[in-house]
């Protein structure tokens, strides 16, 4: 493990903590896309099935369980908590799951390293993670006032992606057998999706203003 990956993981963890704290402290999930959160839960379930049959490190296992637990906790708050669920922007969060899940599943069936159930599900999770942020970005585009915690949540997720790319570059340079084109291409697409958001995030941060995305 290198420093880039550790930073990436920590930003990922921090983004989830910020979101969970926002929901718990303000009893509100305004501006958060349940679709994106459910897609992330699906991503984690498909990718971390290896918890049952392979062990890499205590760190990895601990983080996997943490990501799974927090993802389901967020979904539970947004769907079932009596107070929180009333603040969910149901009418605005209209992105269709099938538009993301179906192409990713098809692609995973065709483009994978090995045609086994766990490998296809792992590959599916890589593809799905790349586009799972889209419902959140669409929701933010529709919301006039994006609160700071939501903006910071997405910015932290973007930082996680950025550090993972640095990690891949580092591993590509230092490890002989690190040739992961599936991960590379999905990762670059995923990070590129944030580029537009980051542009406006930086503009508003410089001007010390609340984030507003142009329509």
């Amino acid at each position: 493990m290198n420093l880039f990956r550790l930073c990436g993981d920590m930003f990922h963890l921090l983004s989830i903590m910020v979101l969970l704290l926002k929901i718990r402290a303000t009893r509100s999930c305004r501006g958060i896309s349940l679709k994106t959160q459910e897609l992330y839960a699906l991503v984690f379930v498909c990718r971390y099935l290896d918890l049952f049959y392979s062990f890499i490190s205590v760190y990895n296992s601990f983080m996997k369980v943490t990501f799974l637990a927090t993802a389901f906790s967020i979904v539970r708050y947004m769907r079932y908590d009596k107070v929180v669920k009333q603040t969910y922007d149901r009418e605005q969060d209209t992105f269709r799951y099938v538009f993301l899940i179906a192409p990713c599943l098809l692609l995973a069936l065709v483009l994978n390293h090995r045609f086994t159930l766990t490998e296809v599900l792992w590959t599916f999770s890589i593809y799905l993670e790349a586009v799972a942020i889209l419902p959140q970005l669409v929701l933010m585009q529709r919301t006039q006032n994006i609160d700071n915690l939501t903006a910071n949540y997405v910015a932290l997720l973007g930082a996680y992606r950025g550090f993972y790319i640095l990690n891949w570059i580092y591993r590509f340079a230092t490890e002989r057998h690190y040739r992961q084109w599936i991960v590379w291409i999905s990762g670059v697409i995923q990070t590129a999706l944030y580029a537009d958001f980051f542009f406006y995030y930086a503009l508003c941060w410089k001007a010390n203003k609340r984030l507003q995305l142009p329509a």
């Binding site: 392979s54 890499i56 983080m63 996997k64 390293h113 057998h177 040739r179 992961q180 599936i182």
Partner: peptide, 10 residues
């Protein structure tokens, strides 16, 4: 194990 190398990431 080259195809498996990204499996040690999260």
């Amino acid at each position: 194990a080259s195809a498996q190398s990204a499996h040690d990431e999260l």
